[in-house]
Amino acid sequence: MSTTAVAHAHAGHPPTTTGLDHRKIAIWAFIGSECMLFASLISTYLIYKGRSVTGPFPHEWWCRATKATSAAGPIAGCPAGELFKPILNIPVTSQSTFVLLMSSLAMVLALAAVENNDKPGWAGPGWGGRLLESSKLWLLTTAILGAGFLCYQAYEFTSFIHEGLTIKTNLFGSSFFTLTGFHGAHVTAGVLWLLTLLAIDIKRGLGPRDALLVDISALYWHFVDVVWIAIFTLVYLIR
């Protein structure tokens, strides 16, 4: 083997064993780990469901004076001002769920735009194609929808506190705020991540060689979304 050949063999990095990027394997391992994190939180919520000794309750009407609860509707004979509605606000949370689902759509479009950034016109003719080609637009949209979800959550948390449910009030409050708070913290980290990518995109433009950066953030973002799909059903809808 000639000297130059040796030098060449030494230069640079050997290709990865699987041909995949390290970071993508790491993010999937991380997502696997997060499954166990949310499994612990969700288990705790479900174990403590219906074990709170005081109200407010997620799905039941309750009467402070008589300590009676009812899943069916208002409790007869409860003094005025002592009767409380179930605390979960399904219409509002349905909207925030929709917002988060749509953010996932925006995220896949952002990734597609970045991956095809070197092929002008890939998304077809007309204004629709031009819209689909804008990675900045879709990154921004995803971040805004994520921030919108957080606004819904902030509204939900403050209204619960006004209605007398804090993290200290009962088991429902403790497990609910911790579970959804953890999810919200993940969304917050995701929004920061997306804004960072957007800043890089504005500064120097993201192209196919950066696709992996967007890909791993997208995987994280969709994972946070599927966790919410589970939470929405298990916490909000199932009584």
Partner: peptide, 11 residues
Amino acid sequence: TNFYEIAQGGD
């Protein structure tokens, strides 16, 4: 919080 508070139903 009440996660392990027996009086609050915690386990």
